[in-house]
Design a protein around this nucleic acid. Sequence first.
DNA 1: GTCTATAGCTTGATAGAC
DNA 2: GTCTATCAAGCTATAGAC
Lengths: 230, 230
Amino acid sequence: MPDTGSSRRGERTRQRLLDAAERLFAEKGFYGVTVRAIAKASDSDPALVAYYFGGKRELFDAVLLRRAEKLNKIRIERLEACEREAGPAGPSVEDIIEAFTEPLLDRSSHGGPGWKSYFALIGQVTNSPEWGAAVMAKYFDPIVHRFLDALKKALPDAPEEELYWSYHFLSGALVLTFAETGRVDSLSGGQCRSTDLVAVHERLPQFIAAGFKRLAERRTIETEDRDAAE
Amino acid sequence: MPDTGSSRRGERTRQRLLDAAERLFAEKGFYGVTVRAIAKASDSDPALVAYYFGGKRELFDAVLLRRAEKLNKIRIERLEACEREAGPAGPSVEDIIEAFTEPLLDRSSHGGPGWKSYFALIGQVTNSPEWGAAVMAKYFDPIVHRFLDALKKALPDAPEEELYWSYHFLSGALVLTFAETGRVDSLSGGQCRSTDLVAVHERLPQFIAAGFKRLAERRTIETEDRDAAE
DNA sequence: GTCTATAGCTTGATAGAC
DNA sequence: GTCTATCAAGCTATAGAC
């Protein structure tokens, strides 16, 4: 039975495997990486993947889980702080979106290469028909629902459907940012850089908040009837 | 030398290989699919992949190219029609974005399973650090630059940088839509469906246009100076 | 054009030495 | 805990029959 915490040496090996797997999976996806490549990159051994995780697939899950746990804790605190600091009217849509995205952009920028790879991996998995729905639901459903609840308060007249579609667009914009493919660099002739997450942090909440507000103005038939009766 | 057009039978086989590869690559990515699986799914033979395309990688490129050619032609016509039909003030931001996205959403919805798979594949490739920048630049740079030129006319005071970042957010929202992962379905408890591209078509141009307009209001230092001097 | 056969590697997993 | 050795299976690519 693998020892996942008590032994110093074993735990360090386990973390090295996770680090190498994180980086390689982020670059080439689950099928694009071999257990041998992960072992080599971590100065370890293929057999230790089975020893610590059971197999390649379980290692992949462990990579996704490791930072999701820390991240969800941080993001809940960040959202609660945002609500606490807001006036009686509650936080603005911009504030809520910034509370949602800033912990991610901040860690991808300043958290070191592990966080950078982790978010790039999330960017790939999110857009994968094979893993997208299940993985994202497993690791991020609670925080997304809390975030949507905050937005329902900031946009009380918005039909729920519009909030879900708005979140979908936000999610797409955010995870493409994580991928840092360099596409915006070449498209803009170097005026913008994929790695410049400060630029994204300055723009994404504004861009997305404007979109949320726009869709919030759409009306369901029931909402129109109610407004007309007022 | 493979015969890519003159023979009826050979061309049909080639198309069957492309169809099967398109579907499988869209589901599991380049490395998640074997030449054998493609041959089996197309009732064909692994050796024919080499015969018609040279190898697995070249087949992948051929899949990407096949519909990109048709698509670029259609999209240029659509954008020109949009500009022609607009009044002297030119098309609105909403009109331009709809001209950009509608040909894609329409074919994914009503073009048959091949188009659906193709866009799902684009959704995966776009977010891949390995392929994203190069593939998208190769197949879509001309149409994206035309689209951005139209937006520069509609938003003449917007700093170019803001348009590039706005396009980046649009791209992310669009390609996550193509992936149709089912994430929005479970998140919304069934209120929204990933496959409902009509719902996206009704919302995406509004959402994104609001974002473009918001970022267009941002000012560079040079722009502020110029405005102050007026 | 199509397919069989196969070369030559690489894969994920594991048994067992230390 | 770590690593060597190895297995059975699967991989891409290709030579050559038809």
